[in-house]
Simulated assay, not measured.
Amino acid sequence: MRLFSYIYFPGWPGTRRPAFGARTISGAYLPMTHHIPTYEIPQPSWAQAVDFQIYPFKSQAALEEGLSAMPIKTDIPHRHNFFEIFVFFQGKGMHMIDFQTYPVASPSIHFISPGQVHLLSSQLPFHGYVLAFSQQLWDHKRSGDRALSHLPFFSPFCQQPFIDLTAENQAYIERVLQNIRIDQLQAHPSSREITRSYLKALLLYCERLYEQQSPDSGRDEDRSVALAAHYQSLIEQHFILQHQVKFYADALHISPDHLNRVCKQVLGQKAGELLLNRILLEAKRLLLYSAMTQKEIAYHLHFKDPSYFCRIFKRKNGCSPLSFRQQMQEKYHR
Results as ranks from 00 to 15, higher is better:
Leu3Arg: 09
Ser5Thr: 14
Gly11Leu: 12
Gly14Thr: 01
Arg16Tyr: 04
Gly21Lys: 00
Ala22Gly: 13
Gly27Tyr: 03
Ala28Trp: 03
Gln43Glu: 06
Ala47Arg: 13
Ala47Phe: 09
Asp51Thr: 13
Glu65Asn: 07
Gly66Asp: 09
Gly66Cys: 10
Leu67Ala: 12
Ile72Pro: 08
Lys73Ala: 15
His78Asn: 07
Phe82Tyr: 15
Phe83Thr: 05
Ile85Leu: 13
Phe89Pro: 02
Gly91Glu: 00
Gly91His: 03
Gly93Val: 10
Gln100Val: 14
Pro103Phe: 04
Ala105Cys: 11
Ser106Gln: 05
His110Gly: 06
Pro114Gly: 01
Gly115Ile: 10
Gln116Ser: 04
His118Ala: 07
Leu148Gln: 00
Ser149Glu: 11
Leu165Cys: 03
Ala171Lys: 12
Leu177His: 03
Arg181Glu: 02
Arg181Asn: 02
Asp183Thr: 15
Leu185Asn: 02
Arg196Leu: 05
Ser197Lys: 07
Ala201Pro: 02
Ala201Glu: 02
Cys206Leu: 12
Leu209Trp: 02
Leu209Tyr: 00
Gln213Tyr: 03
Pro215Arg: 04
Gly218Arg: 12
Asp220Thr: 12
Asp222Trp: 01
Asp222Arg: 14
Arg223Tyr: 11
Val225His: 07
His230Thr: 06
Gln232Gly: 09
Phe239Leu: 14
Gln244Trp: 00
Val245Phe: 05
Tyr248Thr: 01
Ala249Ser: 10
Ile254Pro: 00
Val262Arg: 02
Lys264Thr: 13
Arg278Ile: 14
Arg278Gly: 09
Tyr289Asn: 04
Lys295Thr: 15
Tyr299Arg: 15
His300Trp: 06
His302Gly: 01
Asp305Pro: 05
Lys316Met: 08
Lys316Asp: 10
Cys319Arg: 15
Gln326Cys: 02
Glu330Lys: 07
Tyr332Val: 00
His333Cys: 04
Arg334Phe: 08
Arg334Ala: 09
